[in-house]
Amino acid sequence: MKKIILIAVAVLLFTNCEKKEGLPELSAENIPSNDQIASSFVKVLNEETNQQNIFSQLQNSDLPISLTDMFSRLIPSEKQMRFLFSASISKKADNREVYEFWLHHNTDTFNPEEVLVAYAPDNAEQLKSITAFDLQGNKIELDAKTPPEVPVIVIEKNGFHALQLRVEDMNDKLQKAGLQSKTAVTLKNFKSYQKTNLETTKLDKISLKDDQEPWIKGGAEIYAITSGIRDTNNAPELKIIPMYYLDDEDETYYPNQIMLFWDEYQYQAANIQLFEQDSNYNYQELISIIIDGVTQITGTLSGQPWVNALGNIAGAIIDALPEQWYTDDDDYIDSFYTIEKNKSYSNHYGASKNAKVDLSPFTVLGN
């Protein structure tokens, strides 16, 4: 992983304190195991000046805290430096992993002496138990399926902050592959659209039956792939949209999130397909697979009735997905086909009946 930001912060901290002997070199040979990272953080947590600071950060944040933000608020020590350096390196150099922390807390009261520290393993779905450490450094096995009653500080690298970077990368790849127009509305260029009215479809309400996440993985990292037809040749138009708020199954969310920008499409219908970020599958490979799948049918779309082409684009995305997504690790959630412009949808189920949404037309007025 080329985490330039994390390494830069490590270097900044290092240059602002007295140089110490024995700090690890930044090399793949020094990559710690999951248990070593959790155990190292216990040592950081046990430093008296850090404990209350860390607890306060975690209790007062609705979102996971990145390693960078966590350590920027602490006084550097050798133990912290060692942890920061070791956790800034990854074997997966192209997988945009970002270490982050969040607090699992199912109890009404918070007793710091009961706090455990655990690392969220990539294969948590297949495990029967999760290894955690108490503040004395003792190993404790937790049930992987049943959330513990004691507070647990969870360390994760394929969560909220990683998804932010991966969505940006995936959209860049779609543009380079010609499957997303240069004029597509994105966070990068949204300001350029502020003087014009934008016709959109907005997600008003959503709930999931099953988000596939064990407790150790925290909230699900859900994203959508929207697809439509760009021009009269039925060229595909795809976009990745993150849905950071969509954490828990059997909960109803009211995001008011824009999902479809109709200026991007030739016709007044598009698809919305929901997926969960899969830490067991390299997202760079995944987006390449989807691009290949859609590109393979692009030449056959011209001349088809547009509604057929629209369905074929969504079908190509599904067909391209790894087979295991439909077996043990079901990271495909649902599809909403042929969502029409200027039409409202209430309690509308996806094709797999795993997601239910309310959608409505919404005009973004220019300033």
Score class of each variant (00 low, 15 high):
Leu74Val: 11
Ala132Met: 06
Arg73Pro: 02
Ser129Ala: 09
Met81Asn: 01
Leu135Val: 00
Gln80Asn: 13
Asp122His: 08
Ser86Arg: 07
Phe83Ala: 02
Arg82Met: 02
Val115Pro: 02
Asp122Leu: 06
Glu100Asn: 07
Phe133Arg: 00
Pro121His: 07
Leu142Met: 12
Pro76Leu: 09
Arg73Met: 07
Gly137Pro: 10
Lys139Trp: 03
Thr109Arg: 06
Gln80Val: 15
Thr107Ser: 12
Leu135Met: 11
Val98Leu: 08
Asn123Ile: 07
Met81Ile: 03
Leu142His: 10
Phe133Ser: 00
Ala120Cys: 11
Ala118Pro: 08
Ala124Phe: 01
Ile140Leu: 11
Thr109Gln: 10
Val117Ile: 13
Asp108Thr: 10
Ala93Pro: 01
Ala93Leu: 12
Leu116Cys: 07
Ile75Ser: 14
Val115Met: 06
Thr131Met: 10
Glu113Gln: 13
Gln136Asp: 14
Ala120Gln: 05
Lys139Val: 15
Ser77Thr: 15
Asn106Trp: 00
Lys128Gly: 13
Pro76Tyr: 03
Lys79Leu: 08
Glu78Ala: 10
Asp94Phe: 08
Ser86Lys: 12
Ser90Cys: 04
Asp108Asn: 13
Leu103Gln: 11
Asp122Tyr: 15
Thr107Gln: 12
Ser88Val: 02
Val117Trp: 04
Phe101Arg: 05
Arg82Ile: 15
Ile130Pro: 09
Glu78Met: 09
Ser88His: 01
Gln80Phe: 14
His104Trp: 13
Leu84Ala: 14
Pro76Lys: 05
Phe85Gly: 01
Gln136Asn: 14
Arg82Gly: 01
Glu125Val: 15
Gly137Met: 04
Thr131Gly: 02
Glu97Ala: 11
Lys92Leu: 03
Tyr119Val: 00
Leu142Val: 12
Lys128Glu: 13
Asp94Leu: 11
Ile130Trp: 03
Gln136Ile: 08
Asp122Thr: 14
His105Asp: 14
Thr107Pro: 01
Leu142Ile: 14
Glu78Tyr: 13
Glu141Lys: 11
Asp143Ala: 06
Lys92Ser: 09
Val115Glu: 09
Leu142Asp: 07
Arg73Leu: 11
Leu135Ser: 06
Trp102Cys: 05
Leu84Lys: 09
Lys91Asn: 07
Ile130Ala: 05
Pro121Arg: 04
Pro76Ile: 12
His104Pro: 03
Glu113Ile: 07
Val98Asn: 01
Phe110Ala: 05
Gln136Trp: 07
Lys92Val: 00
Arg82Thr: 13
Val115Ala: 02
Ala118Gln: 07
Lys139Cys: 10
Ser129Gly: 02
Arg82Asn: 13
Thr107Met: 10
Met81His: 02
Phe110His: 05
Tyr99Glu: 10
Asn111Gly: 01
Trp102Asn: 09
Thr107Gly: 03
Asp143Leu: 01
Pro112Ser: 07
Glu100Thr: 12
Gly137Tyr: 05
Asn106Leu: 08
Gln126Cys: 10
Ile89Trp: 00
Phe133Trp: 09
Glu100Trp: 04
Arg82Cys: 04
Ile75Lys: 12
Glu141Asn: 11
Gln80Met: 15
Phe110Thr: 08
Thr107Ile: 01
Val115Arg: 14
Ser86Thr: 13
Asn106Ile: 03
Glu97Val: 13
Leu142Trp: 04
Asn123Val: 11
Asn123Phe: 11
Phe101Asn: 09
Lys79Ser: 15
Phe101Gly: 10
Phe85Asn: 10
Ile130Cys: 03
Ser129Phe: 07
Ile140Cys: 05
Lys92Gln: 12
Ala93Ser: 03
Asn95Phe: 08
